[in-house]
Amino acid sequence: MKIDDFSPAVARDGNFNFAYLDERTKRMIRRAILKAVAVPGYQVPFGSREMPLPYGWGTGGIQVTASIIGPEDVLKVIDQGADDTVNAVNIRRFFQRTTGVEVTTHTTAATIIQTRHRIPETPLAAGQILVYQVPMPEPLQKLEPREAETRSLHGLAEYGLMHVKLYEDIVRFGHVATTYDYPVMVDGRYLMAPSPIPKFDNPKMSMNAALQLFGAGREKRIYAVPPWTRVESLAFEDHPFEIQRWSEPCALCGDTASFLDEVITDDVGGRMFVCSDTDHCLAHRPAHD
């Protein structure tokens, strides 16, 4: 699969400032990113701009990427692990048009990876930056809707509410029922929403060599996990954190260790399980043609 097959190259449009945003906006976002890195897991408020695509389509991630990207960068964009889905193709074309940077589907070739809801299966390297698109940055919001209140809970590192929620899950279902956007503690201090990645990906966040940046456009928050930072998924001693597992391998590449999507193949109950990370899956397929 070549990138041009599903995402024809777009020429740089010189009528836009480099990376679309004006310089003053970029500086504001850059200052927010530096403070986010300095206080890992803390949500820095920023003046999110209106973007040429609606909230919910990754405007936070796009603004973060637009503020960090330079002409030498190589960009990869994924949506649920796939390079060829509509959100990924749109965002990739947006940056081709406004920056002219090189794009890739290969995790190892990218310097910046913007992602919606997955962390690539291939381990990231030092120097790479992973930019997450975040819908709901506040992990406590469903438990405590008042922002003034959640802000002081973070200030006091008072996260009993979340533990109670997980405990109630165990009482009701016998296990913690959260399977995505599973809350994590960053460097033992801040409770953080990892964005709606499957909990399968949570362990990859910890002691990762790459810098992880999170942008929430509608909620106007930026946060970060620096490289080599401890990220722990909340759990109890007698109910340790566990990731999803599948009883069968990927139907296309045969991998047994990657995150699988269920794909419905017909109207009579046919289904198959395939890797959600398309780059990983293609690299592991038996050679053909």
Binding site: N17, F18, A19, E23, K26, R27, R30, I33, L34, V37, A38, S67, I68, I69, G70, P71, G127, L211, A224, P226, P227
Partner: peptide
């Protein structure tokens, strides 16, 4: 070049703060 040079320097700052 204000736009590209500040990006270059910001990335150096970002690298410095993250490592």
């Amino acid at each position: 070049n204000a736009a590209l040079d500040s990006q270059t320097v910001f990335r150096a700052c970002l690298g410095a703060m993250s490592e």
